[in-house]
Amino acid sequence: MTVLIDAKGLHFEELNQRIRKTLQSGAEKIIIDNVNGQRYIGAGIKGTQTLIINGIPGNDMAAYMDGLELVVYGNGQDAIGNTMNKGKIIIHGNAGDTLGYAMRGGQIYVKGNVGYRVGIHMKGYQDQIPVVVVGGKAGDFFAEYMAGGIQILLGLNLKAGERIVGDFCGTGMHGGVIYLRGRVEEHQVGREVKIVDVEAGDLEIIAKHVKNYAQYFNIDFQQVMAKPFVKLIPYNKRPYGNLYTSY
């Protein structure tokens, strides 16, 4: 069952209440039109249904979300997938800051660019491996304090002189892995981060997620894979182990 909700003029509290009620009443898919900055869409919801979001959803979309699939036809704002546990988010546009903050599971695919502090403190736990794939570039502090999961920047459509990632990439990183399709300079990454070559196993992982990306956004898979990737990993999972003296 597909249900249509017109979000025009609705406060987030009312919109989200309607979404929850509609899902409870058995809808498998909700198409939400005229979304214009309403926050917390999909926040704290457990389920396997799909929300199609037409417009620009507000901050904290999919916070603590547990299983839904969200497809955004428009740009996303800040803190998408904040502390998300499970589910999938596909954004046909750009997204803002702190996307995937403390995310523990699920996948986020962004067609375009993302802002600052994306994938910060992303975790992994047992069989939960969160994944963020960004088609364009990311701002400063990408993957700061990263503790687990996989983050991929594809750097598609970069203008001349544009960098795939900003400064302080992976500062405080102590787990997980970052793949960049392009180059990164030593001075751009945190001192906890090691830049290494990708191996066959890595390419398999990358290909799996790039295939999804290519399919969602109708992009040529081979063309994306044709350019080399580098891999960023932490030196160790205890970056501050030797900082202290017992008093």
């Binding site: 975790k123 736990y125 503790a147 102590h174 999972k237 501050y240």
Partner: peptide
């Protein structure tokens, strides 16, 4: 909900 042996920062 973090791996064993990792620093919890």
């Amino acid at each position: 909900m973090i791996p064993q042996g990792t620093d919890a920062l």
